[in-house]
Design a protein around this nucleic acid. Structure first.
Lengths: 144, 144
DNA sequence: TATTGTTATACTCTATAACTATA
DNA sequence: TATAGTTATAGAGTATAACAATA
């Protein structure tokens, strides 16, 4: 039996990611943020121990690019950078009150967005999607 | 039974799309192209009848953004734009020989990439992934 | 010397607003 | 007036290379 014609899966993935990430960006913008700001805040909150390079790698950007975002966020009063007391090469990134508040707002926005995104999808379908996306990552050589 | 902790599906989708599209971009770059150039060539070849606005919408960008890419591609000798003979408001986009040749090279690269991307995935899994991605698009309000 | 992070610079993709040409 | 497309301008995100500070 012939399989039905279907666009390449990479194209479908790309266009889906484009519309989804735009919608997510808009949701974050309404809450006063953006995708890189959200990913940065999330990393700082989640992996407090990691240095900036590890945070950058976790987000999927270069160290210098993270510095660029941190500069902007520090200028906006969302965080402060201090030298680490024992290893003074590394910096400690700490959220200010404004940064913590923004984190909470963006977290709420992200939770609401994910709920919207998962509408009509069962737990098993989400697990399937997760597993299939992991296979794609593995197939392009992503170690994670 | 508790469901296992899993990052939000939007985050997983975003990071997967990032690594996959970077790998695809590299594959296209090796063949002498880029993602927007490839999408533009593909649209011009596939929907010859559509005007630029429809092509732009198909790619998911604004008309002015498409003009920007067409300018670059025309400067590189990949295509020419002519006034349509009967409706002179619209432009006919035609690939030059160089444009046709690049299309073939990028097509080969895209086919090879998709093969790599689908490694170890059965036809049913691809169909599942396709269906699940369509659901996500629908959930963020995408009409297609 | 090696590591961590920053600065300087620039590129790509995208967008909006104002404009021209055509209908 | 409405439509198709272009030009001008700008902004966000990213990258590389060179640098400073620390170990």
């Amino acid at each position: 039996m012939m399989s039905p014609e279907r666009p390449p899966i990479g194209l479908t993935l790309g266009s889906t990611a484009k519309v989804v990430s735009r919608a997510f960006d808009e949701a974050l913008a309404v809450a006063g943020g953006s995708l890189p700001v959200w990913l940065t805040l999330l990393s700082v909150k989640t992996r407090k121990l990691a240095n900036q390079r590890k945070i950058a790698a976790g987000i999927g950007i270069q160290g210098a690019t993270l510095t660029h975002h941190l500069n902007g966020m520090e200028a906006e009063g969302l965080l402060v950078r201090r030298r680490h007391p024992t290893n003074r090469r590394t910096h400690q990134v700490e959220l200010t009150e404004a940064g913590e508040a923004l984190f909470v707002r963006l977290l709420e926005a992200a939770i609401a967005f994910d709920k919207r995104l998962r509408a009509g999808l069962g737990e098993g379908e989400i697990a399937d999607l997760d597993r299939l996306l992991a296979k794609l990552r593995a197939n392009v050589g992503e170690p994670g």
